[in-house]
Design a protein around this nucleic acid. Sequence first.
DNA 1: GCCGTTTTCGGCCCGACTGTTTTCAGTCG
Length: 573
Amino acid sequence: MTVHNAEIAEMFDRMAILLEIQGANPFRVRAYRNAARTLGGLPRSVSDMLCEGEDLSKLPDIGKDLAGKIADIVETGQFAALRDVEREVPAGLVELTRLPGLGATRVRVLYEELGVSDIGGLRRAAKSQRIRELRGFGAKTEQRILDALSRRAQEERRYKLADVEPIANSYVRYLEAIPGVKEVIVAGSYRRRKETVGDLDILVTCEKGSPVMETFVEYDEVDAVVSKGTTRSTVLLRSGLQVDLRVVAQVSYGAALYYFTGSKAHNIAVRTIAVKKKLKINEYGVFKGKRRVAGATETEVFKAVGLHYIEPELREDRGEIEAARKNRLPHLVSVGDVRGDLHVHTTATDGRHSLKRMAEAAKELGYEYLAITDHSKRVVVAHGMDEKRLRKQLAAIDRLNEELRGVRVLKGVEVDILESGKLDLSDSILEQLDLTVCAIHTGLGLSRERQTERIIRAMDNPHFTILAHPTGRLINQRAACDVDMERVMQAALERGCYLELNAQPDRLDLDDAHCRMAKDMGLKLAISTDAHTADNLSYMRFGVDQARRGWLEPEDVLNTRSWRKLQKLLVRL
DNA sequence: GCCGTTTTCGGCCCGACTGTTTTCAGTCG
């Protein structure tokens, strides 16, 4: 049985919390958290790495000890040290620390003084008003705990970037209209363009005396005010989304923007560099003693610690700091580099708009080409096409290309990869196409070995061009199917095939770590919207965001090329 | 428990807000 990185990361996180409750050395606690984070962002499975004899202690924040523990977990499926700790501290306490306002220290007091060991016990203790009696607690804390318990279900959520965007935009417009407000910008993971965000961090600069804080908490969608101060306030919206507002002076704008953009891990790493240079970084600036040496712009802040400017999407402490020091940062792809879309649907299957309308929408975006890739017959629910209907569509594309100017419509299909690894349409029709987008829609639950074999067998077909939405995941809904992505990418490289970064906000599949892995292996990706309406073509920006998080440059992306150059790349090896 | 262009030992990011206290600990980002 393969142990997944995420499972080991989860064990380390639990370990960190339990150790913290026990009152262990906080740096030891942090070491587990850091290691969990490293594992979470790793594109390759540590099981595979161990199989290939790699030394895990070379990974950041993983030393000899944790490398050994990981090896044990992979081998036995068990984390012995965690089980030892769980014998001393109830495992249910982990859940309690996830409630806002409760950290390890308070959870320990609740356990030791009141015997609270799980959510149910906490609720009983709060309802019987025993918590307010404890030293360091009070009636308000007790009420906050009850509120948190009743709200718990919705609070764990992370929101898809695309869902949060309109909420963020209207809040920003509201804040911009407040007298005295100068700049309003959303920082945090939203600015880093993470696929999901847990909350919004809004940064504001304003003139003295601006009623920005009062007005902020009076916003129409605010459900509750969590905290309110002169420089920082937090509210909960009716949607459940938490929004933080920070107010800083103009002279600190860059430092504050940098600070609140994060990620936390990136900030900590850069601060550590600053400390070595006898500098201090906080949200007000970079300081040498009491003297501010930088802070008005982010570039200034980076420069002060000897780094080139790092794009927000890269700030995850995944090597960007080292790259910035050596001036080896990637020149990230942007939406303007994209010359076409290689995966869209029409009314021929489950799309809502006609072939012609889709082509015109592509032309309006300034695209040079657009590949029509409707479903194949296997996908019955989407009214998938057989050879006969596809042939008819190809003729329609020929006619449209004669009439259209400025954009070329490419002939394609989203052909199903059957469980046998065969493609869902005959070679005789596939060979008439400019490209194929090949996808799995059934049998997502196959074992890792069989799924990997299935995809690679499909790639053996010389008409296979691009593997669409490679893991099949749906964010917050469906886990990625189990597949050895490194082998799949290697197989694609050897055959002259490609993988897709599907830009649908629900998919964003490949994820950032896999994009990075493709780049490191030298495999090019297509960023495609999988548009089912003309409007959906604008999803490209989410795909580009994800690509940037994966360090992709224009040359790493197939569809930044002119059709003439792209055509050459689509020829199989 | 990790890590090293000051270190293989002795460090390990920094500040705001809240509630409970009466000068601060805990939590959070």
